[in-house]
Design a protein around this nucleic acid. Structure first.
Length: 189
DNA sequence: GTATGGATGGACT
DNA sequence: GTCCATCCATACT
């Protein structure tokens, strides 16, 4: 008997963040019926100098040390919001959602993003939060209850590479993407 | 109290 | 390819 969606979520949430980041490719993430298929992720964990959790819990990253399956939202460069899914085999791990392939709520995304170019709606961590309407107000919410929804996907071709935009542990290949996707934030090489 | 530096994206050359 | 807008958690004095 195949695993239920809830069982698959639970298994993924409790996996090491690098395994969860890989497994999330092809799943569908939405908020209030707006979202799409996850095509790009990055893994972070507390032993990782590039991770916000590296120096232990603070008021900003507290959600990373809370229950798995919840959303950690932070402000990037003072302008953008970025969202992570808390998951891992211990506290302080999370997966950064870097890009979606838009599938539902396209009109709302176009309006929020101010462009008709579908490839520019969710092709980056800041873009997808703008397209879905995710802000600090959603920090700490569970990803499997409204307004959020996370549904498992089928098998996907996975490509890996170094994470983007970081200066520490930049060589670790913990960026994951769907092979051949047209909706990545940047190409893999 | 002040200083600093990003897990970015968009405009521009 | 380069430049930079703009916020705030954190480190430091």
């Amino acid at each position: 008997m195949p695993a239920s969606a809830a069982q698959r979520r639970a298994t993924l949430f409790h996996s090491r963040s690098e395994d969860a980041a890989r497994a999330l490719i092809g799943w569908t993430l939405t908020m209030d019926g707006v979202g799409g298929r996850i095509v790009e992720t990055e893994a972070y964990h507390p032993e990782d100098p590039a991770s916000h959790s590296f120096s232990g819990p603070t008021s900003r990253n507290a959600v990373m040390f809370g229950p798995v399956g919840h959303i950690y939202v932070y402000r990037s460069y003072g302008i953008h919001w970025c969202m992570n899914l808390v998951c891992g085999d211990g506290p302080g791990s999370a997966v950064l959602i870097r890009a979606l392939e838009p599938t539902v709520g396209l009109d709302q995304m176009r309006e929020r993003r101010g462009t008709d170019d579908v490839r520019r709606l969710c092709s980056g961590p800041g873009k997808l939060c703008q397209a879905l309407g995710v802000t600090r107000a959603h920090d700490g919410l569970a990803v499997d209850t409204p307004p959020f929804a996370l549904t498992p996907g089928g098998p996907a071709g996975i490509i890996t590479g170094p994470r983007i935009g970081i200066t520490k542990a930049a060589h670790v290949p913990w960026r994951f993407g769907e092979a051949g996707s047209r909706f990545l934030s940047r190409p893999f090489r």
